[in-house]
Design a protein around this nucleic acid. Structure first.
Length: 302
DNA sequence: TTACAGTCAATAAA
DNA sequence: TTTATTGACTGTAA
């Protein structure tokens, strides 16, 4: 099973090869690193698909001109910044997903564990900061339904289940991102409001808040709690056994060393300049449903 | 030019 | 093999 994942990610070897140019396999899909982002960064594609108006603009406010270092990253210039829409992705080839599911399959314990061993934390923490209303709003319920809808074979079902815990967690923790995610999935219908957020785990102990109270209330603007994102990313990578190098390259378009540093020594959002983009990507990734995250990982490498 | 920021990439350390 | 360090480099903003 692991191998399957490995293979998926494996394609990495030649990420940067320019076959994308010569043979545009999935021109649309191949969202890549820099450049593409600049024009409208992050949620561009999403926005148009669903409602959710202003956010995109927000995120761009300072994309003035992301100094996309001209030095390398020669090819990879897909304007289409990634038509994220999960459903779409899913359909194009489920085999990948299938393999994904396998991957997940050996993590059940971890996932389930999330709510257990840490339970003491979750309880207290759950309520603690973040986890604001957002949680209850688009609780896990919603996602579940979506995931199910999307997953034809059902092989994914468990994956979905596993995921939601994180999902809402993310939401809860992040606080801000709030709307966007819901948009993504929300298109279908909302499950039953069934709050119950027990997934909490990593992060909280950081009482990030201390950092500068950027997390909670901050509104939808786009303050990202870097410390928290770093932790969450670290946790996810571990959970899925995704090496930093792969994630850095595929999702962030950065080198392993950079990611490592960012993860270990995240600078407060307020201190960041262009480096915010990197964190936005991480954050964005965290907000995506599993299958989407995974496909992003492997697509980028194709 | 100087001071930074953000990265890369080589390589040390697990 | 994967992650952590770190010196060098590039683009920006004084």
């Amino acid at each position: 099973m692991v191998s399957s994942m490995a293979s998926i990610l494996e394609g990495a070897g030649e990420y940067r090869t320019d076959h994308t140019l010569s043979g545009p396999l999935h021109p649309a899909m191949t969202m890549s690193c820099d450049s593409g982002m600049s024009l409208s960064s992050t949620y561009t594609t999403l926005t148009p698909l669903q409602h959710l108006p202003p956010i995109s603009t927000v995120s761009d406010k300072f994309h003035h001109h992301p100094h996309s270092h001209p030095h390398h990253h020669p090819a990879h210039q897909r304007l289409t910044a990634g038509n994220v829409s999960g459903s779409f992705t899913l359909m194009r080839d489920d085999r990948s997903l299938a393999s994904m599911s396998n991957l997940y399959s050996h993590y059940p314990k971890d996932m389930s564990g999330m709510g257990q061993p840490l339970s003491p934390l979750s309880n207290g923490l759950g309520s603690l900061h973040n986890s604001q209303q957002t949680l209850s709003a688009y609780g896990p319920g919603a996602h579940i339904s979506n995931d199910k809808m999307l997953s034809p074979g059902g092989f994914e079902s468990h994956a979905a289940m596993l995921s939601r815990s994180e999902e809402h967690l993310a939401r809860g923790l992040g606080g801000h991102g709030a709307g966007m995610m819901s948009t993504l999935n929300g298109m279908h219908h909302h499950g039953h409001p069934h709050s119950q957020a027990n997934g909490s785990m990593l992060s909280e102990r950081d009482r990030q808040t201390a950092g500068g109270g950027q997390s909670s209330g901050s509104g939808q603007v786009e303050e990202i709690n870097t410390k928290e994102v770093a932790q969450r990313i670290t946790a996810e990578l571990k959970r899925y056994s995704i090496p930093q190098a792969i994630f850095a390259q595929r999702i962030l378009c950065r080198s392993q060393g950079t990611l490592s540093d960012l993860l270990r020594n995240p600078k407060p959002w307020s201190k960041l300049k262009s480096g915010r983009e990197t964190f936005r990507r991480m954050w964005k990734w965290l907000q995506e449903p599993e299958f989407q995250r995974m496909s992003a990982l492997r697509l980028a490498g194709e």
